[in-house]
Design a protein around this nucleic acid. Structure first.
Lengths: 151, 151
DNA sequence: TATTGTTATACTCTATAACTATA
DNA sequence: TATAGTTATAGAGTATAACAATA
């Protein structure tokens, strides 16, 4: 705990909030990751499949921007997903530099099968908070997230 | 966003909260990690140094339990920290299987120097939320964290 | 036998720099 | 020249299995 840190009240408050936020999210993430590992899927891979499912096909650099990943990183991630035959790459006919990434039928099946199990697990893990508390938490996180991407 | 997911109201709410929580924390983490990288320290390394600073010397398996890391992982992490001369290992005289890990004077200097910069950065990034909002967020995350470690 | 930690091994993720192909 | 993506290279983190030393 950062209680020994001799900063201003603003700093102490921000650090305290930060520590609680990251510890809760990490604990949540660790428990979910164990579950995902049993399904042979990593969190970055889940993020890619989710984005493709919810947003639709998009170029590799669009994906990278959305998921905050570098281009070489996206190449490596997509190589692994392509090896599993969960995504496919196609050159755009309009601009042949662009690679359009989309789910394969099998990838769609995987994400559509994994997602409900993931959802049930998330619901169970968040069960320690009431509906109102979850909504307040979500609202504050959204506000924080927006302020971070603007800033 | 998981809005296309046809689950119960509880599931939709939990997923929505989860997505907002993890996106905000990830964005925060990514921005902080860039800063830490410029200080040549990784987030798991920071976590180890922080634990040793705030809790004091402890055995390798205690550290692993606190930080949710496996034993071989702790060995590798501590190898890297020891190479930087930031931590030291000593066999416990009482139980010679046990390795007690502590900060070196240099390690203490590093974490005590890094922490204020880290604190300032965190304070700036959380500036999008008011004091009251930060406190509410912290309270909810603490409650969530506690329910996760009990469960 | 059980516990603490290390070694061996392998894989994913990540980053930077240099490169190719296309615009 | 600028952009999209790949390749080369390297390093950090993580996990499982097999092992040594100690209790």
């Amino acid at each position: 705990m950062p209680t020994r840190y001799k900063g201003s009240a603003r700093e102490v408050r921000a650090l305290d909030t930060f520590v609680k936020l990251t510890r809760a999210t990490e604990t949540l993430g660790t428990q979910l990751q164990r579950h995902l590992a049993s399904l042979e899927i990593t969190p970055p891979q889940l993020a890619v499949l989710e984005a493709l499912l919810h947003v639709g096909p998009m170029s590799q650099s669009e994906l990278g921007r959305k998921l905050l990943r570098s281009n070489p990183n996206m190449t490596a991630l997509l190589d692994n997903l392509e090896r599993n035959k969960w995504i496919q790459r196609e050159r755009s006919p309009e601009d042949r530099r662009v690679v359009v990434v989309s789910l394969t039928p099998e990838g769609r099946r995987v994400i559509e099968r994994v997602f409900p199990a993931h959802a049930a697990h998330v619901t169970a893990l968040l069960g320690g908070l009431s509906a109102e508390e979850q909504e307040t938490l979500g609202t504050l996180c959204k506000k924080l997230g927006l302020s971070l991407s603007e800033g």
